[in-house]
């Protein structure tokens, strides 16, 4: 799968708002919103490195082909 086909996706109801994905995103794509859940705030900056997905303890954020969802 080509990197450009990947899209940042969320399983928002599983997010517990720990902020790990936000802290270790190298391009500051993510924020924790007022509901204490992760929000994709700056999608264009995403370099699709998967660091958020790898370290999300709750499987609430991931990269996949959008058409599959």
């Amino acid at each position: 799968m080509k990197r450009e086909d990947l899209q940042l996706l969320q399983k928002r109801e599983w997010c517990k708002g720990c902020g790990i994905c936000v802290a270790f995103c190298p391009t500051k794509v993510l924020i924790i919103d007022t509901d204490d859940k992760v929000t994709i705030a700056n999608e264009d900056a995403c370099i699709k490195c998967r660091q958020c997905e790898q370290r999300c303890p709750d499987y609430a954020i991931f990269l996949e082909e959008a058409s599959d969802v």
Binding site: E13, K16, G17, D58
Partner: peptide, 14 residues
Amino acid sequence: NLPHIWCPGCSLGI
């Protein structure tokens, strides 16, 4: 069975 019972930020999920 998800979301799991672990606390926010617990790394067991990782």
